[in-house]
């Protein structure tokens, strides 16, 4: 079967050395078959086993047949959207249900066009990219924290129930909420979105230099929009503020 010019792989000729001679391989490369393929196979096998055992032991939920007259109490979205549902407590639906998801998607897609450095690629570079990773990590963590709160701490009528509290306990009415008057809300919003643009430029002048105007404004605006979410939540939780800005057409 051996054809002329073929290299047999033996224990005396390590794979890397054999492939070093191949036009496609760089020195140090290994053959995909079998070294990668068997890892993929084993990973798939492992997950098949886990999934099968899980499915044999835990049944998927199925409640009563759908009934438009009776709302489940509490009525929860699927867990991966419970974070957004939690945001619905703090924001109007057009923000929590439409603008925030859209901005998350657009923001994620914009990441490689804002952070265009080609350093630190292809390995875990947490120490070298502290700034970028701490922002992304905070967002990723917030997503999961909101899911945790919505999934495990929200009980009937979407009240907070601690895990040791009984759901049959009726919670009393909540405090009445108030809005900022427009002459507070409007300047506050302008200062919030305008101020950091200048302050960040003063504090870290290299940022604007490295990113250029468009990227700088885009990145700072996206970051401010993102941090506005927990800030608004804190305003509600600590001071019972419902809207920062009330207008005739929409409320923020």
């Amino acid at each position: 079967m051996k054809q002329p010019g073929e290299t047999r792989i033996t224990s005396e000729r390590p794979v890397a050395q054999a492939f070093g001679a191949m036009p496609t391989g760089r020195p140090g490369d290994v053959a995909v078959f079998p070294y990668l393929v068997y890892i993929e196979f084993l990973a798939a096998l492992l997950f098949s086993i886990v999934l099968l055992v899980w499915s044999l032991t835990v049944d998927a939920p199925l409640l009563q047949e759908a009934n438009p007259g009776v709302t489940e109490n509490p009525a929860k979205a699927p867990w991966y959207f419970v974070g957004l549902q939690e945001l619905l407590v703090y924001f109007d639906p057009w923000i929590a249900g439409v603008m925030i998801p859209t901005l998350i998607i657009v923001g994620l897609m914009a990441i490689p066009y804002l952070d265009t450095s080609t350093n630190a690629v292809g390995r875990y570079t947490i120490r070298e990219r502290r700034l970028v990773i701490s922002h992304f990590g905070f967002g990723f963590a917030l997503w999961w924290i909101l899911i945790f709160i919505g999934q495990f701490l929200r009980g009937p009528n979407w009240h907070i129930y601690w895990p040791w509290q009984d759901w049959s306990m009726v919670k009393s009415a909540e405090a009445t909420l108030w809005d900022f008057p427009w002459w507070v809300g409007l300047p506050a919003l302008i200062a919030y979105f305008g101020g950091p643009l200048f302050l960040a430029q003063k504090r870290w002048p290299w940022l604007l230099e490295r990113l250029g105007m468009t990227r700088y404004v885009g990145a700072v605006t996206l970051a401010l929009l993102f941090y506005g979410v927990p800030i608004k939540m804190l305003l509600r939780l600590l001071f019972n503020v419902k809207y920062v800005l009330v207008t005739q057409w929409f409320n923020v």
Binding site: E65, A66, P68, E72, A75, G97
Partner: peptide, 16 residues
């Protein structure tokens, strides 16, 4: 088409 499904989707689509 159970209660879980119906209300999750009612809430989700009302956001639209």
């Amino acid at each position: 088409w159970d209660q879980l499904a119906f209300w999750a989707v009612t809430v989700g689509t009302n956001m639209a």
